[in-house]
Design a protein around this nucleic acid. Structure first.
Length: 278
DNA sequence: AGACGTACCTGACCGC
DNA sequence: TGCGGTCAGGTACGTC
C-alpha cells in the first residue's frame, strides 16, 4: 500500500527508536517474500549497530556499522510495528528483530514486500536500486528534467510519472492526486505536455507528497512513544477513490458532469475530473 | 528500446 | 451464512 509519504513516515518513526542501537536478535518466519530473504540475513544483522535509517524511493535502508545495509520494501500491504514489549505473534509477521529495547515487526499479508541486505558501498549498483530515477522532492526533479523526460514518451502522462525510472515514489494514488492538482488530463500522451505544464506538474507532485508527509508526521506523535503500526495514516484525497463525488474546488455541476470519473490505465484505477482536467 | 500485459499473494467487500 | 467474483496504494519480467 504505502507510497513515498508512507515510507517516509515509517523511516521517521523508526529512526529515533533505533538509530545508534545494537540489534540483539533477528527472527525470520518466512523467507519467501517477493525475493527470498538471504540465508545469512539473521547473522548479518545480529550484533551490529544501526548507524542510520533513510529512505530511497520506497525502500527503507538501514545502514549498519558492519558495512552492510538492510533493505526493506513494504510492497502493497506491508507495515512495520514498533513494540515496547514483546508483541503477540500475528499472522504474516515475517521478520522480527530487537534493538534499543524495542521489538520491530515486519508484517506483510500479500508478500509483495521484501527484506534483504547488501554491502553499503555497493548500494548504487544494487539490482533493486540502480535503475531508480531522481527523488521527487530533490532539486534534480524539476520542470526542465520532467519536460525532457516526458517529451520522448508516447504513453499516458499518468503512467509516465508512475515509472520509477523517471521519478521515484509516485504511486497510483499520488499520480491521480498530482495530475488533478496540476489540472492535467491523465490520459494525455506524455509527449504533449508543454514545458509550462511540466513545471506545474513537477510543483504539484512535490506539493502533494509534502502535504501527505506532513499528515503522516502528525500521525506519528500518537504511537512513537508506545506500541504502534507504521505505514498507514488517515489522509483526505481530492480525487482518489472519489468516483461520482463532487470535485473539490471545481465549479462543475455534479448532475451535469457526473463528478469525478474512474478509468483504468495500465490495469490500475485512475481518478480525475473531466471538467477541471479537460 | 519502448510499450504492454502478466505474475506474484492474501484479504476485504459485494451481490446473489 | 456461504460462495464466487472483483479489487487493492508495487514492481519485475517476458514478449512483441
Amino acid at each position: 500500500m504505502p507510497e513515498l509519504p508512507e515510507v517516509e513516515t515509517v523511516c521517521r518513526g523508526l529512526a529515533p527508536a533505533l538509530t545508534g542501537h545494537k540489534i540483539t536478535s533477528v527472527t525470520v518466519n518466512r523467507r519467501k517474500l517477493r525475493i527470498p530473504v538471504p540465508r545469512d540475513f539473521e547473522k548479518t544483522l545480529t550484533g551490529s549497530r544501526i548507524v542510520k535509517i533513510r529512505r530511497r524511493a520506497k525502500y527503507i535502508i538501514m545502514e549498519l556499522d558492519n558495512g552492510t545495509s538492510a533493505l526493506w520494501h513494504l510492497g502493497m500491504s506491508g507495515s512495520m510495528i514498533i513494540s515496547a514489549t514483546m508483541p503477540v505473534p500475528a499472522k504474516h509477521d515475517h521478520v522480527i528483530f530487537q534493538a534499543g529495547g524495542k521489538t520491530i515487526t515486519f508484517n506483510d499479508p500479500r508478500r509483495f514486500g521484501l527484506v534483504t541486505a547488501d554491502q553499503t558501498k555497493n548500494l548504487a549498483d544494487n539490482k533493486l536500486l540502480r535503475h531508480l530515477g531522481p527523488e521527487p522532492l530533490e532539486s534534480g526533479f524539476n520542470a526542465k528534467y520532467l519536460h525532457e523526460k516526458l517529451s520522448t514518451k508516447k504513453i499516458a502522462v499518468k503512467l509516465a510519472i508512475m515509472d520509477q525510472r523517471l521519478v521515484v515514489g509516485v504511486g497510483n494514488i499520488y499520480a491521480s492526486e498530482a495530475l488533478f492538482a496540476a489540472r492535467i488530463d491523465p490520459r494525455r500522451s506524455a509527449l504533449t505536455i508543454t514545458r509550462e505544464e511540466a513545471a506545474t506538474l513537477a510543483r504539484a507532485i512535490k506539493a502533494v507528497l509534502k502535504r501527505a508527509i506532513a499528515a503522516g508526521g502528525s500521525s506519528l506523535r500518537d504511537y512513537v512513544q508506545a506500541d504502534g503500526e507504521l505505514g498507514y495514516f488517515q489522509h483526505a484525497w481530492a480525487v482518489y477513490n472519489k468516483k461520482g463525488k463532487a470535485c473539490p474546488g471545481c465549479r462543475c455541476t455534479l448532475a451535469k458532469t457526473g463528478g469525478i470519473a474512474k478509468i483504468i490505465q495500465g490495469g490500475r484505477a485512475t481518478f480525475y475530473c473531466p471538467v477541471r482536467q479537460g
